[in-house]
């Protein structure tokens, strides 16, 4: 370990994924995660929290077995303090506090959305990008302006990942529906009519899900998947182009679970080209929620001295992206 970078343990647990990782600078020493898939319907916060409670000890054990060094070499414990589901956040915070006390290492409270951005800034060449963050629980256009990450546009109702999953469920595709919709869409041939609405740089998807569900009785699953992706991704693309044209950022970073969708990647790549900008996407295995991103963001907090005392480490279920003090970018 020649690196002088601090070693950070990252704990992710805002919704249905428990993630644990140990990193040092851009290097990933160990990374484990487990995701809860409800037997049917959406996520129930309590059930997800119970799942996380069971998973964290298992994942931590695996992580510590993999490390080439003793846990006391770790310099900081980063955890997802928010936003997310209250019960899940509380579980994660409890685990983080326990490790922090046991190892006597500082606690670092990370904003989950910003962690997705910092992941991209650490492992892709993107430095000051316009970020399209697409996941099951969030859909936002984020960029750094005036000392903070600002949300230029976002969903006014459900997130794109949630929209895909909920349509998938209605078509009896296995959960989570997103990847199955992506696959089925490749066989789609006919573009069916769906609403297209954009409000400045913001958008909403629940009306589109409702409209798509009405097509199920009379159209093939692949045509519905194809059309739904074409419309929703076109809206995301347009919002991205608007934001890019306003901010003149010069690069776009695609991040979050839905960033694994290759069709969306290709579309956003074209958007970047329209605005003469560079395109970056996070690697597939780190697109979804994970401990690595929390640890990367935690590294910045440790370096800027933003350590939180245990008694001030309560979770922040509604913590907004633009509420975070960003001391590590000038």
């Amino acid at each position: 370990m020649a690196s002088t970078e601090p070693i950070i343990l990252g704990l992710e647990g805002t919704a249905h994924t428990a993630g644990v990782a140990v990193i040092q600078g851009p290097q990933i020493h160990a990374n484990e995660s487990a995701t809860y898939f409800p037997p049917q319907g959406g996520i129930h916060p309590r059930e997800a929290a119970t799942y996380l409670t069971k998973q964290f000890p298992i994942l931590l054990k695996k992580i510590f077995q993999k490390l080439q060094f003793k846990p006391d070499k770790i310099d900081g414990i980063a955890f997802s303090q928010g936003p997310g589901l209250g019960p899940c956040l509380r579980t994660t915070a409890t685990v983080a506090r326990a490790i922090s006390l046991k190892l006597n290492k500082p606690l670092l409270g990370v904003n989950h959305c910003i962690a997705h951005v910092e992941l991209g800034r650490t492992i892709t060449p993107a430095n000051d990008p316009l970020v399209l963050y697409v996941s099951g629980g969030n859909t936002q256009l984020i960029t750094f302006l005036n000392g903070r990450y600002r949300v230029l546009g976002e969903t006014l109702d459900i997130a794109i990942g949630n929209a895909l999953d909920s349509l998938g469920r209605e078509m009896n595709l296995p959960h989570p529906g997103g990847p199955h919709i992506e696959k089925r869409a490749q066989q789609g041939k006919n573009l069916l009519l769906l609403p297209y609405t954009i409000k400045g740089m913001s958008f909403s998807f629940s009306g589109m899900v409702t409209a798509a569900k009405k097509l199920i009785a009379n159209h093939s699953t692949s045509d519905i998947c194809y059309s739904f992706q074409e419309y929703t991704f076109a809206i995301l693309a347009e919002a991205t182009e608007r934001a890019l044209s306003c901010t003149k950022k010069g690069s776009v970073l695609l991040t979050g679970g839905v960033a694994a969708n290759v069709h969306l990647q290709n579309i956003i790549k074209l958007v970047a080209k329209e605005q003469e900008s560079l395109f970056y996407v996070v690697p597939r295995n780190l697109a979804g929620d994970n401990g690595v991103m929390i640890a990367f963001a935690g590294t910045h907090l440790l370096k800027t001295g933003e350590i939180i005392p245990i008694q001030k480490s309560q979770v922040k279920p509604r913590w907004r992206t633009d509420q975070v003090q960003v001391g590590w970018i000038s």
Binding site: H16, G42, P45, G84, L85, T155, L156, A159, P317, R318
Partner: peptide, 16 residues
């Protein structure tokens, strides 16, 4: 109202 709806959803309902 729209704003707080978006905020509330950001917290819980976006994940159903």
């Amino acid at each position: 109202k729209i704003q707080s709806r978006a905020r509330y959803i950001a917290r819980e309902d976006r994940l159903e």
